[in-house]
């Protein structure tokens, strides 16, 4: 999931200072789990805004904030409140914020959170980065531990000289990705593979921004091509 963190509240109130009527839009997925965009956080921000003399016209936890079409349908029930709103504060990730920009092309939209990384919830409200979305997954070759993400240098072929007691030179709190990979490969009986395969430098063109994926289009093209052949 996308891990988010609340922006500094004072700064948020300052940056939205020119607006007076706010609608607060949360998200039931990642942001709720992160404690940044659930009902509780909406109520909290509502209180703070009202304390600083602002009006909150309404608030809603969207099912999936990054799904703009679905969110737009969900928001129909708040038409009156939204018509009466001059600024929507989105309490999810950057993608959720941009859904709102799409839904409200003429309204101010502000994010209440900073989007940090794609990760896992390890314990309640504790999160670890797990995937860099590099576009070319190597987990099949590394025993399921991602060196692109878990190694601060993203090394693809084994530990650097900075490993100390299985930990990273950057911080004793970071387990060395390549020691973890070694242990996994050892347990899986794949050590030989670990020693013999040299992973080539990554093709970073797979992560040139902005990325787009249209699976539907690919299918259409394929069938179109077949038709042409006939």
């Amino acid at each position: 999931m996308i891990i988010t963190k609340k922006k500094d509240r004072k700064k948020l109130l300052e940056s939205t200072g020119r607006y007076n009527r706010f609608f607060l839009l949360g998200c039931s997925e990642c942001a709720t789990l992160c404690g940044t965009g659930g009902q509780e956080q909406i109520d909290e921000l509502k209180k703070e805004l009202e304390e600083s003399g602002k009006t909150v016209t309404g608030g809603f936890v969207a099912k999936t904030g990054c799904q703009a079409l679905g969110t737009k349908v969900e928001l129909k029930q708040f038409k009156e409140a939204l018509d009466n709103t001059d600024c929507v504060i989105v309490m999810s990730c950057g993608a959720g914020t941009q859904s709102a920009v799409e839904i409200f092309p003429e309204k101010a939209v502000y994010p209440s959170n900073d989007s940090l990384f794609l990760g896992n919830m390890t314990r309640l409200q504790m999160f670890d980065e797990r995937c860099s979305l590099c576009g070319e997954c190597v987990l099949d070759l590394t025993g399921g531990v991602c060196p692109v993400t878990a190694c601060p240098k993203g090394i693809l072929n084994g530990p650097c000289g900075g490993t100390k007691d299985g930990h990273c030179e950057i911080s004793a709190e970071i387990p060395c990705a390549w020691v973890r990979i070694y242990d996994r490969m050892n347990k899986l009986g794949r050590l030989e593979e670990f020693g013999q395969t040299t992973l080539a430098a990554k093709d970073w063109s797979a992560s040139i921004k902005p990325r787009k994926l249209n699976v539907r289009e690919q299918k259409d093209k394929k069938s179109g091509g077949e038709e042409k052949k006939k």
């Binding site: 072929n157 084994g158 000289g161 490993t163 007691d165 299985g166 390549w178 070694y182 020693g195």
Partner: peptide, 18 residues
Amino acid sequence: VVTPEATPPEPQMLKFQK
């Protein structure tokens, strides 16, 4: 370069081979 005293040594030695 190689770090003979890296701990644990085994992954370091495999990297040496690479």
